[in-house]
């Protein structure tokens, strides 16, 4: 027990050192490049973050009503989080059930087969035309993406449960509903948590990139405008901010699911 605790601490320490080295290397490369417009160092990005956080007059002249970080972050991550919740919940149910009911498998298979391999981003233009430039088009897109990714993993997790685990429960008198609760759900839980974390990170990425294509509000919209201005530092500041908030959300998921994963050691 104490062995693994020191091991975790050591991994954490080296992880922190890695991030620090990365930071310094970035600063050094930026220093020798010498052009903030091409490769801004961390300090320039930080400066850009501080000055853009509560909004930018320049952007407001360009017709962006809300240019501050908090509103746009809340918009982007809020939409992505709601989409993630809806899509993942549907994906878990559909995936697990499809592993046990052939008719449901037949219904979900075409969708999971195609979009398990094809980037969902390809559907973004169609969603924009159909559901407008508001939040609904992105919400549906990200929810659909999460449904597919989580559905594929939940299904294969339920298919990979050793049959004896369920047979054992059956000989102890558990009916199929009780077996689902006592065996299928907990056995598939660890891979589902892993894919939920993946789906959140990539779902946010998809949300932001769909906002690049067409949106009135959101971090993606700001990134698009800043990229048009050629402001690398501002694009980096926006992307890193989204990444940090996503990281916090990821930590929350990990903390929330940890008790249910302790049996794995």
């Amino acid at each position: 027990m104490s062995q693994s605790v020191t091991e975790v601490a050591r991994a954490g320490r080296w992880g922190a050192i890695g991030v620090l080295v990365f930071w310094c290397a970035w600063e050094a490369v930026a220093f020798f490049t010498g052009k903030d417009a091409v490769l801004p160092g961390p300090r320039v990005v930080l400066w850009e973050f501080q000055h853009g956080f509560f909004g930018d007059r320049g952007l407001e002249y360009l017709g962006i009503r809300h240019s501050d970080y908090p509103v746009n972050l809340a918009w982007t991550l809020g939409t992505a989080a709601v989409a993630w919740l809806i899509g993942s919940a549907l994906g878990i149910v559909a995936g697990l059930k499809a592993a046990r009911r052939q008719w449901l498998r037949d219904v979900t298979e075409p969708v999971l087969f195609v979009f398990g391999a094809v980037p969902v981003l390809v559907a973004a233009p169609l969603f924009l035309v159909w559901f407008g430039a508001g939040p609904l088009s992105k919400l549906l897109l990200v929810a659909f993406y999460c449904f597919v990714v989580v559905g594929v993993v939940a299904q294969s997790a339920a298919l990979n449960i050793p049959p004896t685990a369920e047979e054992y429960a059956a000989t102890l008198g558990l009916d199929s509903k009780a077996r689902f609760r006592a065996v299928v759900l907990p056995a598939a839980f660890p891979p589902i948590v892993a894919v939920l974390r993946l789906a959140l990170a990539t779902g946010i990425s998809l949300e932001v990139s769909a906002e690049l294509l067409g949106s009135r509000v959101g971090i993606g919209r700001l990134i698009a405008v800043r990229a048009q201005q050629g402001n690398v530092a501002a694009v980096l500041a926006l992307a890193i901010t989204v990444g940090l908030v996503a990281l916090v959300l990821d930590l929350v998921i990990r903390a929330a699911t940890r008790p249910a994963l302790r049996w794995q050691g």
């Binding site: 991994a11 922190a16 050192i17 981003l121 990425s205 990229a227 694009v235 980096l236 990444g243």
Partner: peptide, 26 residues
């Protein structure tokens, strides 16, 4: 390995798809 995992753990959370304009700038 642990150092690289630390960096990758952070980079993994970046909205990668939305960073393509950066490469067009570079």
């Amino acid at each position: 390995r642990q150092a690289v995992s630390g960096i990758a753990g952070l980079l993994r959370m970046l909205p990668v798809l939305a960073m393509s304009p950066l490469f067009a700038l570079w």
